[in-house]
Amino acid sequence: MAEAQFLIRHAGPHVTIQDAGRPGLSRYGVPASGAMDRPALALANAALGNPPGAACVEVSPGGLQLELTRGAITLAVAGGGFVVEVNGQKGGSWSVLTLTAGDRMTIRPGPWGSWTYLAFAGALQAAEWLGACATHSTSGLGGGRLVFGGTLTVQNAETRPRRAGPIPCPVWCRPRHEVPLVLGPQDRFFPAHAVQALLEQPFHLTASHDRMGVRLDGPRLMPESALSIPSEAVLRGAVQVSGDGVVTVLLADHQTTGGYPKIATLAGAETDRFAQLRPGDTVLFRAVSPRAALLMARQRAAQTDACLAALARKP
């Protein structure tokens, strides 16, 4: 079968192999990991006719340059507003294109977004750990980080010319400054004015933004007293407050447990577009009920399924 091979000519920090992740192992200290923007990864795959959770390259703002050294292959790029340049020809993410041997492709940040996904028509060869290729960035376990001078191999590589062209970018894949969250589970340990500050004052993303989480600049949210809770489970999207009142939102490679109080947790459906925000961006948190957040998750799942089905219908 045909094989395609790429030489990695540049890979910024935090460029890793990701897939749909390995949920269900938090009780062993293993977070689900997987794409920071899960719908974008699924759409990149679906645009090629791949299973939605297939392994992709997750490109960070550090960017990526690949040279196809062997074979010919169709690729899809989805997520964020990145610049995709092939042999000097500029295009954008949310597109399907075909490379032949000798072609060079550069992916770098464009007008918006922090993460984009490069999917391959074929099977990207990547190390599995506990049933998934998703890279756990802190340990490097899983498919791993891309490094300068390394190679990527795709087995059963195909060109799928009929898939070429743009991928529609759903509006809910774009980040929004208003971010819904559910208060708790430890909001009761904060004075009313701290909860009010969380919901009424703007926060800004700092440059401390990686796969584990993002630290926010904004009002300090001091708990009622010097507070240490017994270590307990932490979910993706947890809004954690450290001893000095600084807020951090935990993301795909979060620690599975922690002893800092969590004043709130982002609505699951909004966690991925939140991850697409950039350092300096402003967020305004809005409290919704657990039930409202659950209905948002159901609505988003239906919207995602509809987009995936439309892409699957493409010949």
Binding site: S26, A297, R298
Partner: peptide, 22 residues
Amino acid sequence: LVEAIPAFVNLCVVFDPLMTDH
């Protein structure tokens, strides 16, 4: 049920919001 995460004083029971509710 997605998973249950035991800790010192509590158990966090994570579920699929498409299949069930709180």
